[in-house]
């Protein structure tokens, strides 16, 4: 395998951080998050996945779509598309799969979302293979594997001696060539690549057949499993594939005689109260059970039917973070059970 030394990697990270935004897992007051770093020492080479997924790099929690300038009866709109080249480092297989799931909806289905598409084009993604699975991880149950290199531009795997480098795309090769010297930085190791050595059993997940979902739409189980739900937004915000957003105009400071606004879009979550409430007051998902049902159905039934991929990568963040232990794998098992023993 082609490997680079540890020092070569850190030098590479330092050089990148000097020239363009480098976003990598980093500890912020003890919480592991993707953050822009200014040097390699700020990058956390952690086994765990960051609390939030890297989707926020491409689909920010708040994004300006355009600005509005009002001067008397003159109105001008200025589109604010992403323009900066950047690199994201340390992306795990589950999060890379999340990006490809978002790609299927944002880009591959017309019309392409120009903001997300621009950010994807401008960003090179460096992945890091997992050596072990977390307690709540279940990517393997969804046909993924922790050392799957697909979905990133360069896939790294950490070893004692250094990092195995697997170039996946031309974009990745271009980035590599920009910063690393053949010979000086690379070496070939003759030992075979050992993948994920983890022996932990992931949570067993049986994906219900598609035909099960319509049959269980009216089932009483939804109100029951959602009873303890707090209707917060943690699961949707932490999820690498959730992408619901809200849009609104908000005022900016302006000089005299002028008014300025920005049209922003922000993360939203179908689990929250009033998510679907119209101005007229109609609220088709007033109940928590209806909202939780929609979340599950969207991930495992609606999204795959429309875009050909699950809207779940088995990363396990929702299970980790839910304050009341609403466990998506438990719900899937329950669906299969209810179907078998109605």
């Amino acid at each position: 395998m082609t490997m680079i030394t540890r020092s070569a990697l850190f030098r590479w990270l330092d050089e990148m951080a000097e020239e363009l935004p480098l976003i990598a897992p980093s500890y912020v007051e003890g919480i592991l998050l993707y953050r822009q770093v200014s040097k390699s020492s700020e990058v956390a080479m952690a086994r765990e996945r960051p609390v939030l997924s890297p989707k926020e790099v491409f689909f920010p929690s708040t994004e300006v779509l355009f600005t509005i300038n009002k001067n008397g009866d003159k109105l001008r709109l200025n589109e604010t598309l992403p323009v900066k080249e950047q690199v994201v480092f340390g992306v795990k297989a589950c999060d890379a799969r999340g990006l490809s799931s978002l790609d299927a909806m944002f880009i591959d289905t017309a019309p392409a979302d120009p903001y997300y598409a621009a950010q994807r084009k401008l960003t090179t993604v460096i992945g890091m293979k997992c050596k072990e699975m977390g307690e709540t991880c279940f990517c393997t149950e969804l046909g993924l594997s922790p050392d799957d290199p697909s979905g990133v531009d360069i896939s790294l795997a950490e070893f004692e001696e250094g990092f195995d480098v697997q170039v996946m795309t031309q974009k990745g090769l271009d980035l590599l060539n920009r910063y690393l010297q053949d010979g000086a930085d690379f070496y070939i190791d003759r030992s075979p690549l050992s993948g994920c050595t983890d022996a932990t059993q992931p949570t067993r997940v049986v994906l219900p057949e598609a035909k099960t979902f319509p049959l269980l739409f009216e089932d009483a189980m939804w109100d029951e499993v959602a009873e303890r739900c707090l209707s917060c937004r943690i699961c949707a915000y932490a999820c690498p594939t959730c992408r619901c957003f809200d849009i609104r105009d908000e005022e900016l400071p302006a000089s005299a005689g002028e008014r300025r606004f920005e049209r922003i879009r922000c993360w939203d979550s179908c689990t929250r109260n009033a998510y679907r409430r119209t101005a007229g007051g109609h609220d088709p998902r007033a109940g928590k059970g209806e909202r939780l049902r929609n979340r599950i159905y969207c991930k495992y039934y609606y999204f795959p039917r429309r875009y050909g991929q699950l809207s779940c990568t088995g990363c396990g963040r929702c299970i980790d973070l839910c304050p009341v232990n609403i466990d998506i794998t438990e719900i899937l098992r329950r669906i299969v059970e209810v179907r078998q023993f109605p």
Partner: peptide
């Protein structure tokens, strides 16, 4: 078809 809000089933 991007923000996902107006779904009626799939």
């Amino acid at each position: 078809g991007k923000c996902g809000r107006c779904n009626l089933g799939d």
